[in-house]
Computed example of a mutant assay.
Amino acid sequence: MADLLELIDISKTFDVRSGGRRATLSAVDHVSLTVRPGTTLGIVGESGCGKSTLARVIVGLHLADDGELVFDGKQMLTGKRRTPGELKQMQMVFQDPSSALNPRATISESIAFPLQVQGASKSVIAERVATVMRDVGLPAAYASRYPHQLSGGQRQRVNIARALALQPKLVVLDEAVSALDKSIQAQVLNLLSDLQDEYGLTYVFISHDLNVVRYLSDDVAVMYLGQVVEQGSAQQLYDEPKHPYTQLLLSSVPTLDPAESTRDEPVDTADSTEIPSPIDPPSGCRFRTRCPFATDLCAQVVPVPIQVGEGRTVACHLYTTP
């Protein structure tokens, strides 16, 4: 089965001011990813690694500087605004459920808005709003309420309902549960899983919470300073991480299970525990300043992703040198 989404060498930079001078921030640097239909691709990494920028490039909120995006067999121009038909097939759920909703619009009005933009009739809009509200677990009586009258979890259900209103093929979830309490997170994650089966959805799920990503994702990509350093199935990546950065991330995940309290210590870092600036990233491998295995080669040559198993790649000189 062909991939639903394919990103090929996607790059995105921003012009910023740093220290009183103009500079270029490399948010996404030559990222290539694929997403199979009906599956979830999880994207993880520390804050500032480019996850959210990549999400916005996928749905067209940011225009990529370079690269190709192929969606459902059709190449989309990454440097031009999306057409209404293209936008209909991709929807996004944002991190903050409050700021993503218009405080002056009722719940039904918020959900109906994308349908109105697409020119749907009033009868179709009314039917579709009622359907998606029911599917995300919102009582019909909430249709006339305003966002401030709902809890955080309920507001996020509204955002999910609005994303589903146009019956998209792909939904990008950018830290969609990180602002919620843990108990509510679990409810929303179970809802997303049920909706994926019911609607046949494909997800790109972005989060800094590795446990949440493991629960929902079929495949995982690990980003560091704008680049993908490792990707593969969730089981492969979590059971046997290859890249030193992935090992660092997973070893730092806290556990409440006493049986796992003796797990290995986090990977020792080399020169610094601080993340380098994306304005002036290290030469060669961008992780080398924090990597205990770094060599002279790492400072001179950018590692390219190589296959280390079926459907699995890693960008590290440990796997390219004898």
Rank of each mutant, 00 (worst) to 15 (best):
A259D: 13
L210G: 09
M223L: 14
P241Q: 11
G200Y: 01
C291E: 06
G309M: 06
A299V: 05
V308R: 08
C291M: 13
T313F: 02
N211T: 15
E265W: 06
V302S: 00
V308M: 02
D257Y: 14
T313M: 05
G309W: 08
S261Y: 03
D218T: 12
R312K: 05
L216E: 04
T273E: 07
C298D: 05
D257N: 15
L210H: 06
S261K: 14
I275P: 01
P254K: 04
P258D: 05
D268S: 12
R290W: 08
G232F: 01
G226T: 14
F287P: 02
V213S: 07
P303D: 13
L210T: 11
T202H: 06
A259Q: 15
P258I: 07
P241F: 09
V222C: 01
Q300N: 09
D268Y: 01
D239M: 02
Q231C: 10
Y203A: 06
I206C: 09
S272K: 12
Y203F: 11
S233T: 14
Q307I: 14
S207Y: 10
I206Q: 04
D280I: 02
S251C: 02
S193Q: 09
A315L: 08
R290C: 07
L225V: 15
T246M: 00
A294F: 08
Q235K: 11
L192D: 05
A234T: 15
T262E: 13
Y224E: 02
L249H: 06
A299T: 11
G309L: 09
D218W: 09
P258W: 07
S252C: 11
I279D: 01
D296I: 15
D264H: 08
V304W: 02
G226C: 15
R214E: 14
Q236S: 10
V212I: 15
G226W: 14
E240L: 12
R214H: 12
S272N: 10
C291S: 09
V301Q: 11
D257V: 12
C298S: 11
P244W: 07
Y203G: 03
A315K: 12
I206W: 00
V301E: 07
L256F: 12
L195W: 09
L248Y: 03
A315G: 10
F293N: 11
L256M: 07
Y215L: 13
C285K: 12
L210W: 07
V267Q: 00
D194Y: 03
Y203T: 07
V308F: 01
D239Y: 02
L192M: 12
D209G: 05
I206P: 03
E260Y: 05
P278A: 13
S251R: 14
Q247S: 00
N211K: 13
E274C: 05
T289G: 00
L210C: 08
E198T: 13
D257K: 15
I206M: 00
E230A: 08
Q196H: 01
G311P: 06
